[in-house]
């Protein structure tokens, strides 16, 4: 068949788009397809995961929420929640904190979970360990003060101080 766009070249590209359950078939020649920005393998900008994601985000908000002024904004990079829901991407690591409340339901929808269970960077691992140790020592310190073992308490206090210094580095 001839390409219905230009009516000159044979249609070599055949595809079906399904939007909201409505099927539309397209037949185009390579030239018209390129002009229309449709599928060149590897070089298309067609339907992306981000658009699908923003669909989920909109679906996610209740009617009341949709009318609420959307002023939630990340202080670090300036991205607003509205912008995020359009592009489906965050601007910086702090966005995860800023938008936490709305993010968790979304993550559960996408991944089925909202908590990481995989690899931990070695450095963060060290830090987490130090933090745990610190908490432990603080608890011990409180106990020693309670029982008035001041010598022990002083030793613990010094240990805590050096750990805190290590963490701040």
């Amino acid at each position: 068949m001839l390409c219905p766009e230009c009516g000159k070249r044979p249609a070599t590209l055949h595809y079906t788009k399904i939007v909201n359950g409505e099927k539309t078939e397209f037949h185009l020649c390579e030239v018209c397809a390129q002009e229309k920005g449709e599928v060149m393998p590897g070089f298309e900008h067609g339907f992306s995961f981000h658009q699908l994601l923003s669909g989920l985000l909109n679906f996610n908000s209740s009617p009341q929420e949709a009318y609420k002024p959307q002023t939630l904004r990340c202080n670090t990079c300036g991205l607003t929640y509205n912008q995020f829901s359009k592009i489906g991407r965050f601007g910086c690591g702090d966005c995860y904190k800023t938008f936490r409340e709305r993010l968790d339901p979304l993550l559960r929808r996408v991944h089925g979970h909202s908590t990481h269970r995989g690899k931990i960077p070695e450095r963060a691992q060290g830090e987490l360990k130090l933090k745990k140790e610190l908490e432990q020592l603080k608890a011990e310190l409180a106990a020693k003060i309670e029982t008035e073992e001041f010598e022990e308490a002083a030793r613990l206090r010094d240990q805590i101080r050096s750990l805190q210094e290590q963490l701040e580095k």
């Binding site: 994601l53 489906g88 965050f90 996408v110 990481h116 995989g118 960077p121 963060a124």
Partner: peptide, 22 residues
């Protein structure tokens, strides 16, 4: 130093990659 957060794991621009990033 990577952007990493205990609860969410490795932070990525798109939330579909967050966690392991794999």
């Amino acid at each position: 130093t990577y952007a990493f957060e205990g609860g969410y794991g490795y932070l990525t621009s798109c939330p579909t990659n967050v966690g392991t990033g794999i």
